[in-house]
Each structure stands twice: as C-alpha cells, then as structure tokens.
Write a protein that binds this DNA or RNA. Structure first.
Length: 259
DNA sequence: ATGCCTGCTTGCAGCAGA
C-alpha cells in the first residue's frame, strides 16, 4: 500500500500536474494540502476520473485539505482540529481507511513572521494537535499523521540552517513543539529509513532554489507503533518539482506492507 | 532588512506562502 502527501499549492491551478503525478505514481491514498479553493470549486470529477474517491475541506483563497483513496471512500471522522471553536482555517481532516487505520491530513500553520500573532497561532495549533494526537494514540489503533507540518525538525532538514533560525519554520519553539509531539511515540517514517541523508520536500520558487537544491524537509509521515515492521520504503518524487506550473512542494510517499 | 516567485482575489495590488 502506497500513501502519499502533496502540498499542491492550488488544486485547480495545478490540476494537470496533480493528475499526471497521480497517474505516474499511482498512490493508494493521498493527503493534499493548500487546495486554495472553496468546497464547491474542488475538482471532484477529475479526481474521480483518475480513480479516486475523496473527501475534502476547502476554503476560499487559502488552506484546504483533502484525502484521496483507491481503497474505498475515506470514512470521515473529523474535520477541523479540536480545541478552538473560533479557528476557521481548513487545516485538518481525519478519516478511517478501509476499516484498517486512521489517517489525519494536516496543514500546520506557517507561522511567519516571527515574532507575532501568526507565530502564536502556529504554536497554539501545535499544542492542540499534540493534545489530540495523544487522544488518538490512547485508542491503541493504527494511526498516522500525514502532511505539511511547516517545521524542519533538525539541521539535517535545512540546506542552510543558520539562515533559517529566526524563521517560523525553524524557530526553536517550533522545533521543540514538534519534538513534544514526537515524544508521544510517533515514528518519522522518512528518518526511520534514512536517518542521515539530506532529504528535502520543498524548494522556494525564487533564488533558483530547486536548481541549487536549496530545500527544506517539512512534509512528514508520523506513524503509530502499530506500523512497526511494515514500512517497506519511502521517498520524495523530486522530479515533479521540476515540472511546468508545479507546486513549490514535491510529493512524498511511503510504502507499507499490506496486513 | 527586503525581495526574490507564484496563486488567489466579487482581482488588476496586496496578501500569504515558507
């Protein structure tokens, strides 16, 4: 079973890229972030025609998440992260896949500029996520948190760490929040298989970042202990970042042994 | 320190992204 995450940066503007990648990579499950479209502008027919059932939570202009599946329609269990009824951003969607596991599609706030209210919102969101993640783990069923966490966990995840220390994606408070989440018992799937390699999932549009491989690793798969021993492979479809009209993120994927 | 690019908007310049 192949599961992917892809910050698409505009699901309609990038639709040709998305469809081409879906056809080539053929993942069974896909978490999308940054749809940048309201619910009624989601390209449902194109996604269905590509062979996927889908649930989505859109929003005008910004944010928006979706879960695509070839294994039957995802059974939605939650839209929106609990803990703040006033938070209207579409950043969290949780579903059960094929009665086998829970998947949470996550688009964690960017948080820039630091310092400021956006950074405070990021940390607050992180705190809510960690609390909810703890509750999820308490159910003792297979669960994974998948998506754009907008955090580089370590210096290995940044092409030039010293120039990012005051950026919301790499501020120590954000890294510590990520670590607190991880300490609940999650496995970072990419790092599990590649503990020491420089692996990036995002490259800025400017400064010829992609050509220079000046990238960041901010899209992650966090797996509960139930998946131990089932992680077969993982990777980043880097070439997609080089396509015309592409997102600034590349798709990231893992392959799990079927059970 | 800022902008670099890019998508989105009851758009045409400003915001957000990372």
């Amino acid at each position: 079973m192949k599961i992917a995450t892809y910050n698409i940066n505009g699901v309609n503007g990038r639709l040709p890229v998305l469809l081409r990648w879906l056809k080539e990579a053929a993942p069974d499950i896909v978490c999308l972030q940054e749809l940048k479209a309201p619910d009624d502008r989601f390209p449902l027919k194109a996604i269905n025609d590509a062979g996927y059932e889908v649930i989505w939570h859109g929003q005008k202009s910004w944010n928006g998440v979706a879960i695509l599946s070839k294994l039957g329609r995802p059974l939605e269990v939650r839209r929106g992260l609990p803990g703040d009824a006033t938070d209207m951003h579409s950043r969290y969607l949780e579903a059960i896949i094929a009665n086998r596991f829970v998947i949470a599609c996550i688009y964690l706030p960017n948080g820039n500029p630091w310092p400021g209210p956006k950074f405070d919102y990021k940390l607050a969101w992180f705190k809510r996520l960690t609390k909810h993640a703890k509750a999820l783990l308490a159910h003792d069923v297979p669960v994974m948190l998948v998506g754009d966490f907008n955090v580089m966990p370590t210096e290995l995840d940044v092409y030039k760490p010293e120039s990012w220390v005051n950026n919301a994606l790499f501020r120590i408070e954000a890294r510590e929040a990520f670590e607190r989440l991880m300490k609940l018992g999650w496995t970072d799937a990419i790092r599990e298989l590649y503990p020491k390699e420089r692996i990036y999932t995002f490259w800025e549009y400017f400064r010829r970042a992609f050509q220079r491989n000046a990238g960041l690793r901010i899209d992650h798969f966090l797996l509960s202990k139930h998946f131990r021993g089932r992680l077969l492979s993982a990777g980043v479809d880097v070439k997609v970042r080089g396509w015309e009209k592409t997102s600034d993120h590349a798709p990231v994927w893992i392959e799990l042994e079927d059970k």
